[in-house]
C-alpha cells in the first residue's frame, strides 16, 4: 500500500511518501500564501522524487494548520496525533515529544504511538519559531546563526517578556545598553527553552521514564536544542529530518 501524508503548516508544507510503511521520499516547501496550492505542489513533488505513479497511491491523509482544506486528502488528523504517530515510528520507545513549529509549540505524552496527554501554547507566538524569527531580526542576524550564538555566550541576558512584540523592544533596549550580541541571543533562546520546559513539566514529561524526542523546524536549531536539554535535564532525540514527523504520521494513519 502506498500512502502520502501532507502536513500543511503555517510556514512550510511537508509531504511524505510511504510504501508499506517504508519511507520512499519527502519534501519540504514554503507554504507562502496559498495553502491548497502548496499542498498540491508538495504532493506532486514527493511523487516525482520516486518511481511511484499517481495512480498507485492508495491513501492521502492531511494534518497541520491547513489540513481541513486539502482536497487531495481523504481525511485529516490533528497535528498532535500525527506527530505522535510519526515520531513514535522513528523512535518506538519514546514517552514524550516536544514540537516547536512556526506558530505553535506542543508537548505530547505518548506511549506506543498513542497520545496520553498534550498541551499547546495559547494563542500567542511566545516560544515559537515566529518568536525566533522576529527577535533575530531585532538582533540584525540571520535566524540560522542565532542558535550558534548560544554556545558563544558566557552570560545569557535576562529576557523577561514573553510577548514577541515586547521582547523585540526588550532586545533593542539591551542593545542600547551595550550587552553582547551572543548574550542577548542566548537570553532569547533561554526564554524559549524555559517556556517550553514549563509546558513539558505540566504534563509530567520530565518524569516519563523514557526518551523524549524534539521535532519541528526549530529542532534544527542547535542552540535551542542544547538549551532545552539543559532546562529539562535530559537528552532529546532528534530525527534526521525533524520537520517531517507530522507528514510522516499522517502517511502512517490508517482509518
Amino acid at each position: 500500500m502506498i500512502t502520502v501524508g501532507i502536513d500543511s503548516g503555517s510556514s512550510t508544507t511537508k509531504a511524505v511518501l510511504l510504501e508499506d510503511s517504508k519511507q520512499l521520499a519527502y519534501t519540504i516547501i514554503p507554504t507562502e500564501f496559498d495553502f491548497v496550492k502548496a499542498s498540491e505542489k508538495a504532493y506532486f513533488d514527493v511523487i516525482s522524487q520516486s518511481d511511484v505513479q499517481e495512480g498507485d497511491i492508495g491513501h492521502v491523509y492531511s494534518t497541520g494548520y491547513g489540513r481541513k482544506n486539502i482536497g487531495l486528502a481523504e481525511r485529516s488528523i490533528s497535528e498532535i496525533t500525527a506527530h505522535a504517530l510519526g515520531t513514535s515510528y522513528l523512535f518506538p520507545e519514546i514517552k514524550g515529544i516536544i514540537d516547536i513549529g512556526g506558530q505553535d509549540n506542543k508537548v505530547i505524552s505518548v506511549e506506543h504511538g498513542k497520545v496520553l496527554d498534550f498541551l499547546m501554547n495559547d494563542k500567542c507566538a511566545a516560544g515559537t519559531g515566529k518568536f525566533l524569527e522576529y527577535t533575530a531580526r531585532a538582533l540584525n542576524i540571520d535566524i540560522n546563526d542565532l542558535g550558534d550564538l548560544w554556545f558563544m555566550s558566557k552570560e545569557p541576558a535576562l529576557i523577561t517578556s514573553m510577548c514577541t512584540v515586547f521582547a523585540e523592544s526588550e532586545v533593542i533596549s539591551l542593545r542600547t545598553q551595550g550587552i553582547l550580541k551572543e548574550d542577548i541571543a542566548a537570553g532569547l533562546i533561554k526564554s524559549i527553552a524555559n517556556k517550553v520546559a514549563i509546558m513539558a513539566k505540566k504534563i509530567n514529561l520530565h518524569n516519563s521514564h523514557g526518551p523524549i524526542a524534539f521535532v519541528g523546524g526549530v529542532a534544527k536549531n542547535r542552540g535551542i536544542h542544547a538549551a532545552l536539554e539543559q532546562e529539562i535535564s535530559t537528552t532529546l532525540l532528534i530525527p534526521p529530518e525533524p520537520q517531517i514527523t507530522g507528514a510522516l504520521g499522517a502517511a502512517l494513519y490508517e482509518s
Binding site: Y65, I77, S78, E79, I80, T81, D104, V115, F118, M120
Partner: peptide, 8 residues
C-alpha cells in the same frame, strides 16, 4: 486543533 486532538 486542540479539540480534534483530544477527540482523537
Amino acid at each position: 486543533v486542540r479539540i480534534d486532538a483530544f477527540l482523537e
